[in-house]
């Protein structure tokens, strides 16, 4: 396995800046939301620089709009590249979605029809982005609430084929698989087993909420047991994959999130061999 393993990380949130800078908690890495730091200066970048000095980071974006039929936003890509030069992240990710059309932004991660025309369109755009950034990117699967009549394949076939044609990597969101499996009546294990092992570079874990018959990807609750169970199965298939928890609302104190991350470490320690869990920093994770 040549995949770099960063260990277990958390999403860096403004609520936790002071705690992280004061206590230097035992977390292997942080994921930042790229757009939060695409600002001219001030506190956000000051905190970013201080925390980056002590932790590996990855950059996660929401505005690439890779599935849009508008031209790629070159201003955004230039800002993303400039931020990457500052942060020197392990990798950069965004979502397999569209967010805007006719230069009007939904500020949401909107799903795509799963068909050949969309695959060709997006694979070409990912290649353009990778050329511009000078690196491979990771694309992440969404939670979704609609299925298009024009879809001709499963979501995992769509994701995997785009990754293959664009030669990009995959950020697999375990919670999103669970949410979409519920909302669209598929077996989440079909998804896990349908994604190429060698392309998956990172896992996301998160909580969600129920709204009537649907599950909404709200990132405002702890991770539920079925998602932990799916995480264990994902580890069995993919091996040691850098794992982090996303929490965007109802954000608890840092130690509470750290304790939730310890559950992921424990599951990984119970599922994988110790040598698989050796991070690039040379530490054994999840082993007491």
């Amino acid at each position: 396995m040549t995949r770099p393993f960063l260990g277990f990380g958390l999403g860096l949130r403004t609520d936790h800046y002071d705690y992280v800078e004061t206590h230097r908690p035992d977390v292997d890495w942080f994921e930042i939301l790229s757009e939060n730091y695409m600002v001219p200066g001030g506190k956000p970048l000051a905190h970013l620089d201080r925390i980056r000095a002590d932790y590996p980071m990855v950059m996660h974006g929401v505005s690439l709009s890779i599935g849009s039929t508008d031209p790629l936003n070159t201003d955004y890509l230039a800002a993303l590249k400039a931020l990457a030069e500052r942060v020197e992240p392990e990798w950069i990710s965004d979502h397999l979605c569209w967010t805007s059309v006719d230069h009007t932004n939904s500020h949401d991660l909107l799903p795509l029809p799963y068909n050949e025309a969309t695959i060709a369109h997006i694979a070409a755009r990912i290649r353009q982005v990778q050329d511009l950034l000078g690196r491979r990117i990771l694309i992440e699967n969404l939670s979704s609430y609609v299925t298009y009549h024009e879809s001709e394949m499963s979501e995992w076939e769509f994701l995997d084929e785009i990754a293959r044609r664009a030669d990009c990597l995959i950020l697999l969101d375990i919670n999103n698989i669970f949410v979409s499996a519920h909302n669209h009546h598929f077996d989440p294990m079909d998804y896990i087993e349908g994604v190429s092992v060698e392309r998956v570079m990172q896992f996301h874990l998160a909580g969600h909420s129920y709204s009537g018959q649907m599950i909404i990807d709200t990132h405002d609750h702890p991770i539920c047991d079925p998602v932990w169970a799916l995480y264990e199965k994902a580890l069995r298939r993919f091996g040691a994959v850098s794992t982090m928890i996303e929490r965007d609302d109802n954000i608890p104190a840092f130690p509470e999130l750290r304790a939730e991350l310890a559950i992921a470490e424990r599951i990984a320690a119970d599922t994988l061999a110790p040598e698989q869990l050796e991070t690039r920093a040379g530490r054994m994770r999840g082993v007491a």
Binding site: V101, D102, S106, P113, H121, T147, H149
Partner: peptide, 24 residues
């Protein structure tokens, strides 16, 4: 795809839209 995206976004903006016809 472009027509679908314009229709979907139109629906979000509260404009007359046939977005529902694209969805199962």
């Amino acid at each position: 795809l472009r027509r679908m995206q314009q229709s979907f976004l139109g629906h979000l903006l509260g404009r007359p839209s046939d977005a529902v016809d694209y969805i199962q």
